[in-house]
C-alpha cells in the first residue's frame, strides 16, 4: 500500500467518522436545535465528498476558471489537463442553497414547536403528547 492509498484511506475514514458523528447527534440528542445543527454538519460533509469527487490528485492542478478570454487550442488543452471537474461544485452550490432553505424552515418550525409545547426536548414532547392523549 503506497502513500497515496494511505492518504485516501485516512481522508475517507475521517469523512465517515464525521458523517457518523453527525448522524449520532441527529438521532440520539434530544434537543431539536442540536438536531438541526447536526443535520447541517451532515450536509457539509457531503459537500466535502462532492469536492473530493471532482478533485484531481495531481500537480499542477488549477480551479475551473479560464484566465485567457480568447483561448486557442493549446491553451484549452493545457487548461483541461490541469483543471478540476466543474460539475460537482455546481451541484454543491445548488445543495448549499437548498440546504439553507430547509434549515430556515426547520428553525421556524422549531420555534413554533417551543411555543406549543414549552420545550425543545423531544423526549419531553413525547411525554406531554402521551399525557394529553391519556386525558382525552
Amino acid at each position: 500500500m503506497g502513500v497515496g492509498e494511505v492518504f485516501w484511506l485516512y481522508v475517507w475514514l475521517i469523512i465517515m467518522a464525521n458523517a457518523g458523528m453527525a448522524l449520532y447527534g441527529l438521532i440520539m440528542r434530544p434537543n431539536v436545535l442540536k438536531k438541526i445543527a447536526c443535520l447541517t454538519v451532515l450536509a457539509d460533509t457531503s459537500f466535502i465528498v462532492l469536492a473530493l469527487i471532482g478533485y484531481r490528485f495531481k500537480y499542477p492542478v488549477s480551479p475551473y476558471v479560464m484566465t485567457s478570454w480568447a483561448p486557442d487550442n493549446a491553451t484549452l488543452t493545457r487548461f483541461i489537463s490541469e483543471s478540476v471537474d466543474p460539475l460537482p461544485p455546481t451541484l454543491t452550490i445548488t445543495a448549499v442553497v437548498i440546504n439553507l432553505s430547509i434549515t430556515i424552515l426547520l428553525v421556524f418550525l422549531a420555534i413554533r414547536l417551543y411555543e406549543v409545547y414549552g420545550t425543545l426536548d423531544v423526549k419531553k414532547i413525547a411525554m406531554i403528547k402521551k399525557e394529553l392523549r391519556g386525558e382525552q
Binding site: 475551473y64 479560464m66 483543471s83 466543474p86 460539475l87 461544485p89 455546481t90 452550490i93
Partner: peptide, 8 residues
C-alpha cells in the same frame, strides 16, 4: 470563462 457560472 468561469466554469460554475456557465453550467449553473
Amino acid at each position: 470563462p468561469e466554469g460554475v457560472s456557465a453550467i449553473l
